[in-house]
């Protein structure tokens, strides 16, 4: 009896490695790329299995440190505190840049504002400024939408635009890029920020410091709020993880990045 049990347990432990499974978790900005790439990858490589989850960059990095995922998607670089934690757990996280992105500020299509300076955006997010009139727009209450603290996009935005000043407390907090895009699409006074891949005709991307976020302006590094998108692995990638990362960096993988609306690596 005991022997049978033991062998079942052993089989259970051995199975994942044998079947080529990997779990990927984290940034909702990277999510569309990750999801599409995983689908194509699994199609090309029958037997390999990659499961993809969102949650936010912070969640992905926390998970890979805890060992509950194999690839952490992140839309920001790892923080020193996280590195320290990883080291304590004996993990050596390796960063793979898989795409470039511009954090795009979006408003309702009916909003007449087409450009804001970084200073103006900072004012909207950190002060009590409440009317679009102050920013050359319609007489409409501003609804500031931001991301929860688990978001890498929030961290990057906070670094590059807010100078790490606190977001006003009455800002609406949402858990994903998609949630922000859909709220902005139906809220005339809203302003939010999302990754390039989430720009659709339902929302209007506004220029920052005079430059509209497009693939082109991000690629040429003209757009002021540009950042790399990462995948983190534990140590040098192996097996399925390596195959997947290699695939994503290959021309075929980078094509997916572009199709999803982000900027591929040159």
């Amino acid at each position: 009896m005991k022997k049978i049990l033991m062998s079942i347990v052993a089989l259970g432990l051995a199975m994942p490695a044998f079947a080529g499974k990997a779990v990927m978790e984290g940034s909702t900005t990277v999510l569309p790329i990750a999801q599409k790439a995983a689908e194509v990858f699994m199609n090309n490589n029958p037997g390999e299995e990659i499961s993809v989850r969102g949650g936010g960059s912070g969640v992905g990095i926390a998970s890979i440190i805890d060992g509950t995922c194999d690839i952490a998607d992140a839309s920001r670089a790892i923080k020193p505190a996280e590195l320290e934690k990883a080291a304590k757990k004996g993990r050596n996280l390796k960063a793979h840049v898989i795409a470039m992105d511009g954090i795009s500020h979006i408003v309702h299509p009916s909003n007449t504002v087409t450009n804001l300076t970084r200073e103006q955006i900072k004012k909207m997010y950190t002060s009590r400024a409440s009317n679009w009139k102050e920013f050359g727009g319609p007489d409409l209450r501003i609804v500031v939408i931001s991301r929860d603290s688990a978001s890498g996009t929030f961290e990057a935005f906070s670094d590059m635009v807010l100078d790490r000043k606190r977001v006003r407390p009455d800002a609406i907090m949402q858990a994903s890029n998609q949630a922000i895009a859909s709220i902005v699409a139906r809220t005339p006074g809203a302003i939010g920020y999302v990754g390039l891949g989430y720009l659709t005709p339902a929302v209007k991307a506004i220029g920052v410091d005079g430059i509209i976020p497009t693939k082109e302006s991000v690629l040429r590094n003209k757009y002021p709020i540009t950042r790399p998108l990462f995948m983190y692995t534990n140590g040098k990638p192996e097996g399925t993880v390596k195959k997947f990362i290699d695939f994503l960096k290959s021309p075929e993988g980078q094509k997916i990045v572009n199709e999803e609306g982000f900027v591929g690596l040159k």
Partner: peptide
Amino acid sequence: FDPVRPMTAAIAAEMGEAPV
């Protein structure tokens, strides 16, 4: 008509990334 953040929502939204 004000947006709010009830206790359960705060826990659910933040627990995932709060370092243990």
